[in-house]
Design a protein around this nucleic acid. Structure first.
Length: 494
RNA sequence: GGUCCCAUCGUCUAGCGGUCAGGACACCGCCCUCUCACGGCGGGAACAGGGGUUCAAUUCCCCUUGGGACUACCA
């Protein structure tokens, strides 16, 4: 009986939730959901200068917006609370555990105190480099210079180093990258705890140590993380062994690059998840786009082929997700594809599904008037604009329903509101039945009477009602503006 | 410098020795059309280079080149 699958996402709360982080979290989430396991959110907040409660909230809200719910982790908005049996889930609150583990290693002789000062280290480093070698603490040219063999009592403040194996290879059996071997001699005894405040005291433990202790303590079975951590893994593996813990499975997912192939950064535009939210993208589209970077879903062993198959629902993604179908190489972020997915997902959503997402954008465009509109009206408004690429496009396309024209597209007005159509416009003004069918019938009758084409009257109406010759279908436009307002707006021209 | 990872159309990718190298997005053209869109149809577009192995390499091995990560008392 194998253990229940447990994955975790462990970001540092340093200011924003990066899109690359979201993708890693998404893979962890998909994997856990697929295997009926648990997904943990853990905050690596040992960088005191940058970790704030605000930054933690940004992560929690970003994750929540993306629909990446965690089974264990912090409780949103309350630093003293958490859910799950292995808390707390903020590293700064887990210091006692770390110190206990370090003491254990110290007692077993698997770690030792290091009192080498920055100055002596620098000196030794220079000697080694002058000899054309790579500086490795207490290894190679530096062998015997470190504290490992010295009498390391606790009479002075000291950092703690982990005793790494020498000789042979450390192999990482990675679920994505395959088997990778690192010569043990290319590594050295690394610091697991910074210099303590006083003699015998254990300082703040370092990242590579905390992850291992936490993953072990939280019973994480699958460590799915960015491949920038692949090189950290051979340092961590001997630590698992020293701690007497089973090794989790590792899966290092490739990075996400900007469109130019460089590491995704601010200059590529949006890197923070909140920016995607602000762009009017559906969280489901963001999830799909991110998942499809470096992952090719296979249906019965065959990669998805048609556009139809590309549009996976969450349920399908969860069912199909497999680390074996993940790419080893980094992928460039494709904004066009995201927007296409967004458009398709908008098209196939019901108005009820769309409305909550559209609401914040409409609140702004309608200056608060949206909320008060009846459902039937909202449904029509959404249907009329559901071809848009984004929620912001939809909101923008509906602006005419809330705001009468203040300025007009002069050229369009001149072109479409001609003396020959004005009499027809007058008759449109006089229409009273604003049901779709009645409008269509009345409209056609007017066209016939005046010998006009649909285009002539529709475009004239668009300019008169919306100030520009672009709007949803003409009957939708009339209905959404409403009879009273149509009359008012037309009167300016008649 | 050392260790490690990566490499098919512009982009995301399929391919796991023999394929006309397939698809999606983007792009271009045509059609549809009350505007903008949507939609439909069609088109151009790739195996980084060099050596091996093999009857046969996009596919396996090596080198080069080009990206990238780690190499901190950051995470």
């Amino acid at each position: 009986m194998s253990r229940q699958v447990v994955t975790r996402f462990a970001p540092s709360p340093t200011g924003m939730l990066h899109i690359g982080g979201v993708r890693t979290a998404l893979f962890c989430w998909l994997f856990a959901r697929k295997h009926g396991g648990r997904f943990i959110l853990r905050l690596e907040d040992t960088d005191l200068s940058r970790s704030t409660d605000d930054n933690i909230r940004i992560i929690e809200e970003g994750m929540a917006w993306c629909g990446l719910d965690w089974d264990e982790g912090p409780v949103v908005g309350d630093p003293s609370q958490w859910k799950g049996p292995h808390g707390p889930y903020r590293q700064m609150q887990r210091m006692d555990l770390y110190r206990a583990k370090i003491q254990e290693l110290l007692d077993k002789g698997l770690a030792y105190r290091c009192r080498c000062s920055r100055e002596t280290m620098e000196g030794r480093r220079k000697t080694v480099e002058a000899a054309g070698k790579v500086f490795q603490y207490n290894r190679g040219v530096d062998a015997g210079k470190g504290c490992a063999s010295a009498a390391h009592d606790a009479s002075q403040p000291a950092a703690i180093r982990f005793r790494m194996p020498e000789g042979g290879d450390i192999v990482v059996a990675d679920l994505i990258k395959g088997e990778t071997r690192f010569p043990a001699n290319s590594l050295d005894d690394w610091i697991i705890a910074r210099t303590g405040d006083g003699p015998g005291e254990i300082g703040v433990p370092t990242y590579n140590f905390c992850v291992v202790v936490d993953d072990t303590d939280m019973q994480v079975t699958h460590v799915i993380r960015g491949d920038d951590h692949l090189n950290n893994t051979p340092k961590q593996i001997p630590l698992y062994e020293a701690l007497g813990s089973d090794l989790p499975a590792f899966a290092h997912v490739p990075m996400i690059l900007g469109a130019d192939g460089a590491k995704l950064s601010k200059r590529h535009g949006a890197t923070s998840i909140t920016e995607y939210q602000a762009m009017g993208l559906l969280p489901s589209a963001v999830r799909l786009a991110l998942a499809r970077l470096s992952w090719t879903p296979k249906i019965d062993g065959r990669a998805v082929e048609t556009a139809e198959e590309e549009l996976l629902t969450d349920a399908q993604m969860i069912q199909l997700f497999d680390l074996e179908d993940c790419q080893k190489s980094a992928a460039r972020f494709d904004m066009d594809k995201l927007q296409w997915l967004n458009q398709k997902l908008i098209q196939r959503s019901s108005w009820q599904e769309l409305e909550p997402h559209l609401r914040p954008f409409m609140a702004e465009v309608s200056k608060g008037a949206w909320a008060a509109k009846p459902d039937a009206w909202k449904a029509q408004a959404i249907h009329a604009t559901q071809k848009g690429k984004s929620l912001t496009d939809m909101a923008e396309a509906l602006r005419f329903a809330f705001e009468g024209p203040t300025t007009f597209d002069e050229k369009a007005a001149e072109k479409f509101i001609t003396p020959t159509v004005k009499p027809a416009l007058r008759e449109v003004r006089d229409l009273t039945d604003y049901s779709h069918d009645a409008l269509e019938a009345g409209f056609n009758a007017i066209l016939e009477r005046h010998g006009l084409k649909t285009k002539d009257l529709a475009q004239a109406l668009r300019v008169a009602l919306c100030s520009k010759p672009v709007s949803p279908g003409i009957f939708d436009t009339l209905m959404l503006v409403g009879r009273d307002e149509v009359v008012a707006r037309l009167d300016r021209w008649l």
